[in-house]
Design a protein around this nucleic acid. Structure first.
Length: 254
DNA sequence: AATCTAGACAACCGCACCTGC
DNA sequence: CGCAGGTGCGGTTGTCTAGAT
Protein backbone atom coordinates (compact mmCIF):
# COMPACT_ATOMS: atom_id res chain seq x y z
CA UNK A 1 0.00 0.00 0.00
CA UNK A 2 2.43 2.60 1.17
CA UNK A 3 5.51 2.87 -0.95
CA UNK A 4 8.69 1.83 0.65
CA UNK A 5 10.54 4.70 2.18
CA UNK A 6 13.71 4.06 0.26
CA UNK A 7 11.77 4.53 -2.96
CA UNK A 8 10.47 7.92 -2.00
CA UNK A 9 12.29 10.97 -3.23
CA UNK A 10 13.16 13.80 -0.92
CA UNK A 11 14.73 17.18 -1.29
CA UNK A 12 14.34 19.76 -4.00
CA UNK A 13 11.80 19.20 -6.75
CA UNK A 14 12.87 18.94 -10.35
CA UNK A 15 11.12 20.67 -13.23
CA UNK A 16 9.79 17.36 -14.44
CA UNK A 17 8.27 16.64 -11.07
CA UNK A 18 6.68 20.06 -11.08
CA UNK A 19 5.20 19.43 -14.50
CA UNK A 20 3.72 16.17 -13.42
CA UNK A 21 2.32 17.51 -10.22
CA UNK A 22 0.77 20.52 -11.92
CA UNK A 23 -0.83 18.30 -14.52
CA UNK A 24 -2.34 15.94 -12.05
CA UNK A 25 -3.51 18.59 -9.65
CA UNK A 26 -5.28 20.16 -12.56
CA UNK A 27 -6.86 16.86 -13.36
CA UNK A 28 -7.95 15.80 -9.93
CA UNK A 29 -8.05 19.01 -7.99
CA UNK A 30 -6.27 20.12 -4.85
CA UNK A 31 -7.11 17.08 -2.80
CA UNK A 32 -6.48 13.36 -2.65
CA UNK A 33 -2.81 14.07 -2.44
CA UNK A 34 -1.82 10.50 -1.83
CA UNK A 35 -3.78 9.50 -4.87
CA UNK A 36 -2.15 12.19 -6.99
CA UNK A 37 1.26 11.17 -5.74
CA UNK A 38 0.53 7.62 -6.73
CA UNK A 39 -1.03 8.02 -10.17
CA UNK A 40 1.40 10.69 -11.24
CA UNK A 41 4.26 8.33 -10.78
CA UNK A 42 6.04 10.82 -8.61
CA UNK A 43 8.13 9.16 -6.00
CA UNK A 44 6.88 11.63 -3.46
CA UNK A 45 4.50 11.41 -0.58
CA UNK A 46 1.11 12.99 -0.86
CA UNK A 47 2.15 15.32 1.83
CA UNK A 48 5.15 16.44 -0.10
CA UNK A 49 3.03 16.97 -3.21
CA UNK A 50 0.56 19.07 -1.35
CA UNK A 51 3.30 21.19 0.14
CA UNK A 52 4.92 21.71 -3.21
CA UNK A 53 1.66 22.79 -4.74
CA UNK A 54 0.50 24.99 -1.91
CA UNK A 55 3.80 26.73 -1.38
CA UNK A 56 5.20 26.91 -4.85
CA UNK A 57 3.20 25.73 -7.85
CA UNK A 58 -0.20 27.17 -7.10
CA UNK A 59 -0.79 29.80 -9.81
CA UNK A 60 -2.63 31.99 -7.36
CA UNK A 61 0.55 32.60 -5.46
CA UNK A 62 2.20 35.95 -5.38
CA UNK A 63 5.91 35.88 -5.28
CA UNK A 64 8.50 38.45 -4.50
CA UNK A 65 8.98 40.69 -1.54
CA UNK A 66 6.28 41.50 0.93
CA UNK A 67 4.89 44.95 0.36
CA UNK A 68 4.93 47.38 3.27
CA UNK A 69 1.21 46.97 3.49
CA UNK A 70 1.53 43.22 3.75
CA UNK A 71 4.27 43.57 6.30
CA UNK A 72 2.07 45.68 8.49
CA UNK A 73 -0.81 43.36 8.05
CA UNK A 74 1.31 40.45 9.15
CA UNK A 75 2.41 42.29 12.24
CA UNK A 76 -1.08 43.42 13.04
CA UNK A 77 -2.61 40.01 12.59
CA UNK A 78 0.18 38.31 14.46
CA UNK A 79 -0.41 40.61 17.38
CA UNK A 80 -3.99 39.43 17.38
CA UNK A 81 -3.65 35.76 16.55
CA UNK A 82 -0.11 34.79 17.39
CA UNK A 83 1.49 32.06 15.33
CA UNK A 84 -1.68 31.15 13.49
CA UNK A 85 0.09 31.37 10.18
CA UNK A 86 -2.54 29.77 8.04
CA UNK A 87 -5.12 32.09 9.50
CA UNK A 88 -2.94 35.09 8.85
CA UNK A 89 -2.25 33.84 5.34
CA UNK A 90 -5.95 33.87 4.59
CA UNK A 91 -5.89 37.59 5.00
CA UNK A 92 -3.03 37.98 2.56
CA UNK A 93 -4.16 36.65 -0.79
CA UNK A 94 -1.38 34.97 -2.69
CA UNK A 95 0.78 34.50 0.36
CA UNK A 96 1.30 31.18 2.03
CA UNK A 97 1.53 30.41 5.68
CA UNK A 98 5.05 29.19 5.05
CA UNK A 99 6.04 32.43 3.43
CA UNK A 100 4.61 34.51 6.23
CA UNK A 101 6.17 32.28 8.80
CA UNK A 102 9.54 32.64 7.17
CA UNK A 103 9.13 36.36 6.87
CA UNK A 104 8.22 36.69 10.50
CA UNK A 105 11.04 34.51 11.65
CA UNK A 106 13.63 36.38 9.64
CA UNK A 107 12.46 39.79 10.64
CA UNK A 108 11.83 39.05 14.27
CA UNK A 109 15.27 37.61 14.56
CA UNK A 110 16.66 40.74 13.04
CA UNK A 111 14.63 42.94 15.33
CA UNK A 112 15.64 40.91 18.33
CA UNK A 113 19.27 41.24 17.45
CA UNK A 114 18.97 44.97 16.99
CA UNK A 115 17.09 45.27 20.22
CA UNK A 116 19.70 43.27 22.01
CA UNK A 117 22.40 45.51 20.66
CA UNK A 118 20.64 48.69 21.64
CA UNK A 119 19.82 47.28 25.05
CA UNK A 120 23.43 46.48 25.68
CA UNK A 121 24.67 49.82 24.50
CA UNK A 122 22.06 51.92 26.26
CA UNK A 123 21.86 50.23 29.61
CA UNK A 124 23.56 47.30 31.20
CA UNK A 125 21.46 47.37 34.37
CA UNK A 126 18.08 47.15 32.73
CA UNK A 127 16.75 43.69 33.32
CA UNK A 128 13.06 44.47 33.03
CA UNK A 129 11.26 41.74 31.19
CA UNK A 130 7.88 43.42 31.23
CA UNK A 131 8.63 45.45 28.17
CA UNK A 132 5.61 46.54 26.20
CA UNK A 133 7.27 44.98 23.17
CA UNK A 134 7.39 41.51 24.60
CA UNK A 135 6.38 40.34 21.16
CA UNK A 136 10.10 40.18 20.62
CA UNK A 137 12.02 37.84 22.81
CA UNK A 138 15.53 36.67 23.16
CA UNK A 139 17.14 34.87 20.32
CA UNK A 140 17.69 31.18 20.78
CA UNK A 141 14.95 30.82 23.30
CA UNK A 142 12.51 28.15 22.27
CA UNK A 143 10.01 29.56 19.82
CA UNK A 144 11.55 32.95 20.14
CA UNK A 145 9.06 34.45 17.78
CA UNK A 146 6.09 33.15 19.63
CA UNK A 147 4.20 35.94 21.27
CA UNK A 148 2.71 33.74 23.87
CA UNK A 149 0.03 35.30 25.96
CA UNK A 150 -2.55 34.19 23.46
CA UNK A 151 -3.03 30.72 24.80
CA UNK A 152 -6.48 31.45 26.06
CA UNK A 153 -7.65 32.77 22.76
CA UNK A 154 -5.89 30.00 20.90
CA UNK A 155 -7.42 27.24 22.94
CA UNK A 156 -10.85 28.76 22.74
CA UNK A 157 -10.48 29.01 19.03
CA UNK A 158 -9.24 25.47 18.75
CA UNK A 159 -12.49 24.25 20.16
CA UNK A 160 -14.29 26.51 17.80
CA UNK A 161 -12.37 25.02 14.91
CA UNK A 162 -13.66 21.58 15.70
CA UNK A 163 -15.87 21.56 12.62
CA UNK A 164 -13.57 21.42 9.65
CA UNK A 165 -14.60 20.52 6.11
CA UNK A 166 -12.47 18.28 3.99
CA UNK A 167 -11.28 20.17 0.98
CA UNK A 168 -9.01 23.11 0.90
CA UNK A 169 -11.63 25.24 -0.71
CA UNK A 170 -14.30 24.20 1.71
CA UNK A 171 -11.96 24.81 4.47
CA UNK A 172 -11.23 28.28 3.28
CA UNK A 173 -14.86 29.11 2.84
CA UNK A 174 -15.74 27.68 6.17
CA UNK A 175 -12.94 29.43 7.86
CA UNK A 176 -13.88 32.75 6.45
CA UNK A 177 -17.16 32.56 8.28
CA UNK A 178 -15.59 30.89 11.20
CA UNK A 179 -12.85 33.43 11.48
CA UNK A 180 -15.39 36.18 11.38
CA UNK A 181 -16.93 34.78 14.48
CA UNK A 182 -13.57 34.35 16.04
CA UNK A 183 -12.66 37.85 15.09
CA UNK A 184 -15.76 39.09 16.80
CA UNK A 185 -14.74 37.17 19.84
CA UNK A 186 -11.19 38.34 19.65
CA UNK A 187 -11.99 41.90 18.82
CA UNK A 188 -12.37 42.53 22.48
CA UNK A 189 -9.23 40.68 23.45
CA UNK A 190 -6.23 42.68 24.32
CA UNK A 191 -3.48 42.85 21.75
CA UNK A 192 -0.26 44.69 21.48
CA UNK A 193 -0.37 48.35 20.73
CA UNK A 194 0.37 48.84 17.09
CA UNK A 195 2.41 51.89 17.91
CA UNK A 196 4.71 49.66 19.79
CA UNK A 197 4.99 47.28 16.94
CA UNK A 198 5.38 49.89 14.26
CA UNK A 199 8.32 51.30 16.11
CA UNK A 200 10.17 48.17 15.18
CA UNK A 201 9.68 48.44 11.48
CA UNK A 202 10.21 51.00 8.87
CA UNK A 203 7.04 52.54 7.51
CA UNK A 204 7.73 53.89 4.06
CA UNK A 205 4.27 55.26 3.38
CA UNK A 206 5.32 56.43 -0.05
CA UNK A 207 5.86 52.85 -1.02
CA UNK A 208 2.21 52.05 -0.64
CA UNK A 209 1.44 52.59 -4.26
CA UNK A 210 4.44 50.84 -5.57
CA UNK A 211 3.29 47.73 -7.38
CA UNK A 212 4.31 44.70 -5.48
CA UNK A 213 7.20 42.83 -6.93
CA UNK A 214 5.18 39.91 -7.92
CA UNK A 215 5.62 37.25 -10.48
CA UNK A 216 4.05 34.01 -11.30
CA UNK A 217 5.40 30.83 -9.93
CA UNK A 218 8.40 29.92 -12.05
CA UNK A 219 6.71 26.93 -13.57
CA UNK A 220 4.05 29.15 -15.12
CA UNK A 221 6.74 30.90 -17.08
CA UNK A 222 7.08 27.86 -19.19
CA UNK A 223 3.75 26.16 -18.76
CA UNK A 224 1.74 26.51 -21.92
CA UNK A 225 -1.79 27.85 -21.75
CA UNK A 226 -3.30 24.58 -22.84
CA UNK A 227 -2.53 23.12 -19.49
CA UNK A 228 -5.22 24.89 -17.55
CA UNK A 229 -8.34 25.00 -19.67
CA UNK A 230 -8.72 21.29 -19.90
CA UNK A 231 -10.46 19.61 -22.78
CA UNK A 232 -9.87 16.58 -24.92
CA UNK A 233 -6.21 16.98 -24.16
CA UNK A 234 -7.04 15.46 -20.82
CA UNK A 235 -7.09 12.08 -22.38
CA UNK A 236 -3.44 12.41 -23.19
CA UNK A 237 -2.70 12.79 -19.54
CA UNK A 238 -3.53 9.22 -18.94
CA UNK A 239 -0.76 8.03 -21.17
CA UNK A 240 2.34 6.73 -19.45
CA UNK A 241 4.15 9.56 -17.77
CA UNK A 242 7.34 9.06 -19.70
CA UNK A 243 5.41 9.64 -22.88
CA UNK A 244 3.50 12.54 -21.46
CA UNK A 245 6.53 14.40 -20.37
CA UNK A 246 8.29 13.71 -23.59
CA UNK A 247 5.42 15.02 -25.67
CA UNK A 248 5.10 17.90 -23.28
CA UNK A 249 8.64 18.87 -23.92
CA UNK A 250 8.02 18.70 -27.61
CA UNK A 251 5.14 21.09 -27.21
CA UNK A 252 7.36 23.43 -25.33
CA UNK A 253 10.22 23.37 -27.73
CA UNK A 254 8.02 23.61 -30.71
C1' DA B 1 39.45 36.23 -5.35
C1' DA B 2 38.23 33.68 -1.37
C1' DT B 3 35.67 33.34 2.71
C1' DC B 4 32.10 34.54 5.86
C1' DT B 5 27.50 35.86 7.13
C1' DA B 6 22.73 36.85 7.02
C1' DG B 7 18.51 36.68 4.63
C1' DA B 8 15.18 34.33 1.87
C1' DC B 9 13.07 30.47 0.59
C1' DA B 10 12.05 25.44 0.17
C1' DA B 11 11.16 21.29 2.29
C1' DC B 12 10.65 17.90 6.01
C1' DC B 13 8.81 16.29 10.46
C1' DG B 14 5.63 15.51 14.12
C1' DC B 15 1.31 16.20 15.75
C1' DA B 16 -3.62 16.92 15.66
C1' DC B 17 -7.84 16.71 13.47
C1' DC B 18 -11.32 14.89 10.26
C1' DT B 19 -13.60 11.35 7.70
C1' DG B 20 -14.99 6.93 6.24
C1' DC B 21 -15.30 2.20 7.31
C1' DC C 1 -16.80 3.40 19.22
C1' DG C 2 -12.28 2.49 17.46
C1' DC C 3 -9.09 2.45 13.81
C1' DA C 4 -6.65 3.77 9.67
C1' DG C 5 -5.77 6.87 6.11
C1' DG C 6 -5.75 11.53 4.48
C1' DT C 7 -4.96 16.24 5.29
C1' DG C 8 -3.51 20.61 7.37
C1' DC C 9 -0.76 23.25 10.55
C1' DG C 10 3.14 24.88 13.13
C1' DG C 11 7.95 24.21 14.11
C1' DT C 12 12.32 23.35 12.46
C1' DT C 13 16.09 22.53 9.42
C1' DG C 14 18.49 22.67 5.04
C1' DT C 15 20.01 25.10 0.94
C1' DC C 16 21.03 28.80 -1.94
C1' DT C 17 22.56 33.40 -2.82
C1' DA C 18 23.87 38.19 -2.39
C1' DG C 19 26.51 41.30 0.07
C1' DA C 20 30.22 42.24 3.30
C1' DT C 21 34.88 41.56 4.79
Amino acid sequence: MVQKEEEMRKGPWTEEEDYKLALYVNLFGERRWDFIAKVSGLKRTGKSCRLRWVNYLNPALKRGKMTPHEQRLVLQLHSKWGNRWSKIAQKLPGRTDNEIKNYWRTHMRKSAQERKKSAVSSSSSSSSKSSSSNIITEIKEPSFYDTGGLDVVASAEKKFNAVTPTSNLDRTVSRSTESKNVEEKEESTKFYSMDEIWKDIELPEENYNIPSQTMASPIWDYCPDFLWPMDEEETKMFLPMSYQFHSFNQEMTG
